[in-house]
């Protein structure tokens, strides 16, 4: 009897740790990295490696400097670094990438208290900072090297035109201009399915996000849904960025609201806005609203009342 310890709940333990979840995310992103190597040449892989290394180094230095416990081994900085690199064109100079990494790790993650305390997705802020600072470098997309001749081109989204069905395979394989990690739809889908099979993410947010974006772009501008899904950063954003644990709602109903809302925002920006792509802004805006969505969709305790109704019941 002396070995019986009394402790507070939760008692159910799982073997999942931050480290192995992040490892799964990294594995899921590998197809995208490999695909980018084929499409854009070795520089794409090099940028990804540099960005991850810089993020880890920044996190290590900051935590040493601030005398905080080291959290480098949880691999989250590696994921952030990879995501930042996936969001830039292959021709981006390395120093610009480092600026993005600083914004992501120091500004958004560490200043707000490290992993779990960031209020928006760090990688997306990194992208946003780079986009506002270096507008020309960040929108000069070099077409796929290796498979097609390297030409400078816009993303298909900024020059839509009519979609021929032949182009479908082009979009699926990513043989068009764009950021390193957003062009190859097939690789992103493989990564996304891996995450869902490994139960790292639930498919609710990606499905709601992509579905509502298609629906609303079609309603607002009569856009071709296939084009809207496969061109631009929608898939990459839906699977790898919108599903970030820290900055997405906890409950299933909250996830639905979140997904539909950012899909709607993306559609509004794509159709009416001056930027061709709206995924970044939409996800960031959704991130900011997450605490409110969480409050609205609190889970009812078994046999209990919805929070807020208790007061009314008590008044009666």
């Amino acid at each position: 009897m002396s070995k019986l310890t009394v402790s507070v709940s939760p008692h159910i333990r799982s073997s999942r740790t931050t480290q192995n979840i992040m490892l799964d995310v990294i594995i899921a992103m590998l197809p995208v990295v490999i695909a980018s190597g084929f499409l854009f040449g070795p520089r794409a892989i090099l940028l990804t490696v540099i960005s991850s290394a810089v993020c880890v180094l920044l996190e290590y230095c900051w935590e040493k400097l601030m005398k905080k416990p080291l959290t480098v081994q949880d691999l989250s900085a590696v994921v952030t670094g990879m995501l930042v690199a996936m969001n830039v064109p292959v021709s981006t100079p390395v120093w610009m990438l480092i600026v993005g990494d600083i914004a992501a790790i120091i500004l958004v993650k560490q200043l707000f208290g490290g992993l779990g305390c960031n209020f928006v997705n760090p990688a997306l802020v990194g992208r946003l900072v780079m986009m506002f600072s270096f507008p020309s470098a960040m929108t000069t997309f070099t077409g796929s090297a290796g498979i097609v001749d390297a030409t400078t081109s816009a993303t298909p989204l900024s020059a839509p035109g009519t979609l021929v069905w032949d182009q479908f395979t082009t979009l699926l394989l990513g043989k068009h201009g764009g950021a390193i990690g957003e062009t190859c739809a097939l690789a992103i889908l493989i990564g996304g399915i891996y995450l869902i099979v490994r139960k790292v993410i639930k498919p609710i947010i990606p499905l709601c996000f992509i579905g509502s974006c298609c629906l609303f772009t079609f309603l607002f501008g009569g856009e071709n849904p296939i084009m809207q899904i496969f061109a631009g950063g929608l898939l990459c954003g839906a699977f790898f960025m919108a599903t970030d644990y820290v900055t997405s709602p906890i409950t299933n109903s909250g996830k639905v609201i979140f997904g539909v809302f950012i899909g709607f925002l993306t559609a509004v920006i794509r159709v009416f806005g001056s930027y061709p792509e709206g995924v970044t802004f939409a996800i960031l805006f959704g991130n900011v609203l997450v605490p409110y969505i969480n409050d609205l969709t609190l889970t009812r305790p078994l046999g209990g009342l919805f929070p807020g109704k208790e007061k009314k019941e008590a008044a009666k």
């Binding site: 120093w95 600026v99 500004l107 900072v129 506002f132 600072s133 270096f134 507008p135």
Partner: peptide
């Protein structure tokens, strides 16, 4: 060519 534009824009002001 080596300046970081966002710092002189509105977000940079807040930062």
């Amino acid at each position: 060519g080596y300046q970081i534009g966002i710092i002189s824009q509105t977000p940079g002001g807040f930062m």
